[in-house]
Simulated assay, not measured.
Amino acid sequence: MPSQESSSLSILLLDPRRHRSHRYLQSIGETPGIALIGSARDLTEAYNLTEHEHPDLVLIAEEVTRLGNFPMYAAMLAALEVDCILIAAGLRPASGPYTSITDVDVDRAGGLGPYLGTRFGLRRQPVQPCPRAHISDGWKTVVIGASTGGVEALIQVLSAYPKSCPPTLIVQHISGTYLPGLAQRLDRHCSAQVRPAAASDSLEPGLVLMAPGNDRHLSIVPPGRRCRLVPGAPVSGHRPSVDALFHSAATLGPAAVGVLLTGMGRDGAEGLAAIRRAGGWTIGQDEASSTVYGMPRAAFEMGAVAQQLPISRIGPALLSAAAQSTERSRHG
């Protein structure tokens, strides 16, 4: 556990109730100094995340401790020297050997994030975006990630683009054999030009670049005037990887807009969180309009999504967010 006046705290949230956990996750995601490694709905998921990620702290809904297999999880926490705090839904803390707080304590502090920040003395660290991040002719740079169901989602998003659109880079999980054909199809639905990226392409208004093939990652070269194709192992299980692209976009600070669309798994969730921490704007597709609510769910549950929208509204929203005069902290 970090000592008082620590600068960072890695956290896992274990809470089976979706509505409450979303409220907690939003608060944690907005609090500097806290790194959310994941959100678990059951003990099996929590066990796996704890074993692989080794958080500093696990926040546990009180009702989970009444499950028959909780003692096994508690034993693992003790063996790994991972601390835990129980969150009681009522007015009184839970009884027992564990530190316990209540929803009242959380609300009184202004949310779970501020409560933890105060309790553990986390120092507020200012965001350090690249001061010379390139903003191209009034547009910020847009990065988009998609997987299962992404083709139709991308058609809807790009159909909203004007001819002089923000510089845009896309990673769509698809066989490299089919990527050129997909780029041509998207190009027919978009007023701007859509094509596979080439090494050292310039990022320009009116140009949408897609990660080509399956042997290299697409990334942005700071301060954001061109892209590059980088050989390397798969990231988050994929090559090209949404996370690889998004992490490179985070170097642009507030000059980046990240969008995570429908898809299976969690590729892009960590990268979207990095963009948000760096001051960029982030958008996630909602569950109702997603073919598979996997990647956007993972991002939303870790507090990486600033704006969750149906696919029909994402195109106009990202154009608004990418306008140079648009403030990062408030969009539609």
Rank of each mutant, 00 (worst) to 15 (best):
P234T: 02
A250G: 05
L9W: 02
L207F: 05
G265V: 02
L218D: 06
A288M: 11
R216Q: 15
V64G: 05
E81G: 13
T31R: 05
T102K: 03
V82S: 03
N69W: 13
L319F: 12
L57D: 04
G284Y: 01
A79Q: 15
Y98W: 15
Q4I: 15
E62V: 10
L203M: 14
V151W: 08
A153C: 10
T118P: 01
A244S: 10
S3A: 14
G224F: 04
L43D: 06
P97M: 12
P222G: 09
R328N: 13
G213I: 04
L179V: 09
I101V: 12
R313N: 06
W139E: 03
S236P: 04
S191K: 15
R124D: 14
G303E: 01
Q324P: 11
S219H: 04
I275K: 06
A146N: 01
Y161W: 10
C227H: 04
H331D: 07
Q26S: 11
I311R: 02
G253C: 10
A153I: 01
G150P: 09
L59N: 07
A78S: 15
G90T: 05
R66M: 11
P196Q: 13
A273I: 00
A74K: 07
I101C: 02
R41V: 08
A109N: 07
T291Q: 06
L229S: 07
A88F: 07
T118V: 12
G271R: 00
V257S: 00
A198W: 14
A78W: 09
P205H: 09
C227P: 01
D15I: 07
A321N: 06
A109F: 08
F300K: 06
C190Q: 01
V235G: 01
T251F: 08
H19R: 15
S39V: 08
A40G: 12
W139T: 06
G332I: 14
G111F: 10
F300I: 05
M295N: 01
T282N: 11
S136E: 13
S21F: 05
H189Y: 13
A298H: 00
G294I: 01
R124Y: 12
N69A: 13
W139P: 01
M72P: 02
G279A: 14
H189Q: 13
L86H: 07
L207Y: 00
A256L: 03
R66N: 09
R18Y: 14
G284I: 12
T99S: 13
S6V: 05
S312E: 15
A304R: 00
Q172N: 11
V305C: 06
C165E: 02
A249V: 03
L12V: 07
Q193W: 04
I11G: 04
A244Q: 03
Y73I: 09
M76S: 07
A74G: 11
T44W: 10
T251I: 06
Q193P: 00
L207Q: 11
G29R: 00
I60Y: 04
E204Y: 04
L80N: 12
G279P: 10
P97V: 11
C84P: 05
D286L: 03
L318T: 00
